[in-house]
Design a protein around this nucleic acid. Structure first.
Lengths: 297, 297
DNA sequence: AAGCGTTATCTCTAAACAAGATAGCAGCGA
DNA sequence: TCGCTGCTATCTTGTTTAGAGATAACGCTT
């Protein structure tokens, strides 16, 4: 059974004429006859009553319902990709907690305004998990800390973050080694790239990673830091955005440790749905506005 | 876009291999490549990631959802007609009130037992309306009084009815002309073939059709007859089935007027859906059991 | 019964398809 | 690093199929 046959059949059923159906689909009447005949042979049922008025038989009417389902599904699928300006469907984004909380909202807002027909799904997790999701095809794109080592992926430096030490009391200098040793550190669960920086920071002060508490959410983590539970390391932007809500204080870290880039990673552009391509455009616009220099790879 | 391409695409997506997909659909690998490539060209998107593992890209995953809808709808459509033993879908039957009330129930019960997956719809109305429905394709088959004069329709004598005069008091002989003249007659709305018999009956007694009240339902009509509102003419079977519910009495009518055949009418068998074909079988069985002699045309 | 509009059939050309053979490519193990 | 292996891409062949036109057959109308 061919989609073209179904289209011709529907045209005949609607117009009540082989000739009109042929014109409507830009072909000739003999082809319409052939297609209908083939359909009828395949299904073993007469679909169109030719004698007298041309109209679908009751078997034909039964087929009409299924043909509509098939053809609209087909049209939807085509418009998913050929949608010129209007992307539709679904966009699944993977991002870190911090990125989701601070960087994504304005971009998503702009994107949703541009493509209101796209359903957006956000999955949050630490970098390592996000990479897995991307490799596994469970998300269309991810925002991760650091470059993806995998080839065959499109990379775009999206945001530059400055990590700061976050504590419950004002800090003018780095806490002493003794303080660091006895303090707890709060981090996202295993796989979070910021957590590696914490360990790097501790190591640079000759302190082994002490107690590290794992948290699943940013709010919980900041709340606990504010309560004096310990320290954490987060992007400045993230902390700034939450500072008014928590009594927290920050300290600049050495450049080498502080600087961390968030990359946008997605499969090769040829595999992008219009929804994803449009999102990359939106992201690019936002990034360029923020910071003129950017790197593609 | 071809259904075959979608089938191959789905097979590749599921098996993760062009070779396996080819084997599964009984073709060769080069054809799978060609179909996938054509699909990708049509949609302008890479659907399958070939480098490394063979798997659908996110664009491919998006297509998978639509392909499933298309292919299952197609399979359903095919099984609607090719369903060997199991008919499914919908069967729309048109029948007269009297037939629906008395003759149809056992047949429908047998049919539903044989074909539980068919949705049955009954439309009731007088013969003339039913014929219109059938000609208009709004029902798949009808039970009507008398032969259909239209050619190109399949006719089967389903039931033989004996009409009786129904009144509220015991009758041993035909009521007098005077009685008939002053009495009301109750009938179904315009188009009911039984109504013609009433007028025939009155004419045979030299009485013009007097007051005829029109009713839409059998119950209402019988209730009014029992209440002494007047007479009606109905098939004996119908009256017998309701006699215990109403205080009504019957009188045999002359053969010429009393005898009326109910025919099953449907378009030509070549246009029948399996649901309709199966119903015709069930009907034939029931009719043969009832009455060995029957006429087809 | 003739005319008009319709569908069915036939034929020819061109395009599409299926299958096989072969080349190119990535991954694996020695 | 080198082959080996299994995979996909490409090319070529013969066959099938689709498309367009011409024409015949049919059915309705007058």
């Amino acid at each position: 059974m061919q989609l073209k046959s179904l289209r011709l059949f529907m045209a005949v059923a609607e117009t009540g004429s082989f000739v009109a159906a042929a014109k409507q689909l830009h072909t000739v009447q003999s082809n319409v006859t052939a297609h209908i005949k083939k359909l009828e042979d395949e299904l073993g049922v007469q679909l169109i009553q030719r004698a007298g008025r041309v109209r679908p038989t009751s078997a034909g009417l039964a087929l009409v319902e299924y043909a509509e389902r098939i053809l609209t599904a087909h049209d939807d699928a085509v418009s998913l990709f050929k949608g010129q300006e209007k992307a539709c469907g679904r966009l699944r984004i993977g991002a870190m907690e911090t990125t989701t909380a601070v960087r994504l909202p304005p971009i998503l807002a702009a994107y949703h305004a541009a493509q209101p027909d796209v359903d957006i799904q956000i999955k949050t997790g630490p970098t390592a998990e996000l990479v897995e999701l991307l490799l596994d095809g469970q998300v269309d794109c991810v925002f991760v800390a650091g470059r993806l080592e995998h080839s065959r992926y499109h990379l775009l430096k999206a945001f530059s973050e400055q990590l700061v030490l976050v504590g419950s009391t004002p800090m003018s200098t780095m806490p002493s080694s003794q303080e660091l040793l006895t303090s707890a550190f709060l981090a996202f669960r295993q796989g979070c790239s910021y957590r590696q920086r914490i360990e790097l920071l501790l190591a640079s002060h000759g302190v082994n990673a002490g107690r590290i508490f794992e948290f699943g959410s940013l709010d919980a983590m900041l709340g606990c830091v504010a309560a004096g539970m310990g320290y954490t390391v987060l992007p400045r932007g993230t902390v700034d955005a939450h500072q008014h809500r928590f009594g927290i204080h920050t300290l600049e870290l050495p450049k080498a440790i502080a600087h961390i880039d968030t990359y946008f990673a997605a499969p090769e552009p040829e595999t992008w749905t219009p929804a994803l391509a449009s999102f990359a455009d939106t992201l690019l616009d936002a990034v360029v506005l923020d910071e003129p220099q950017l790197t593609e790879s």
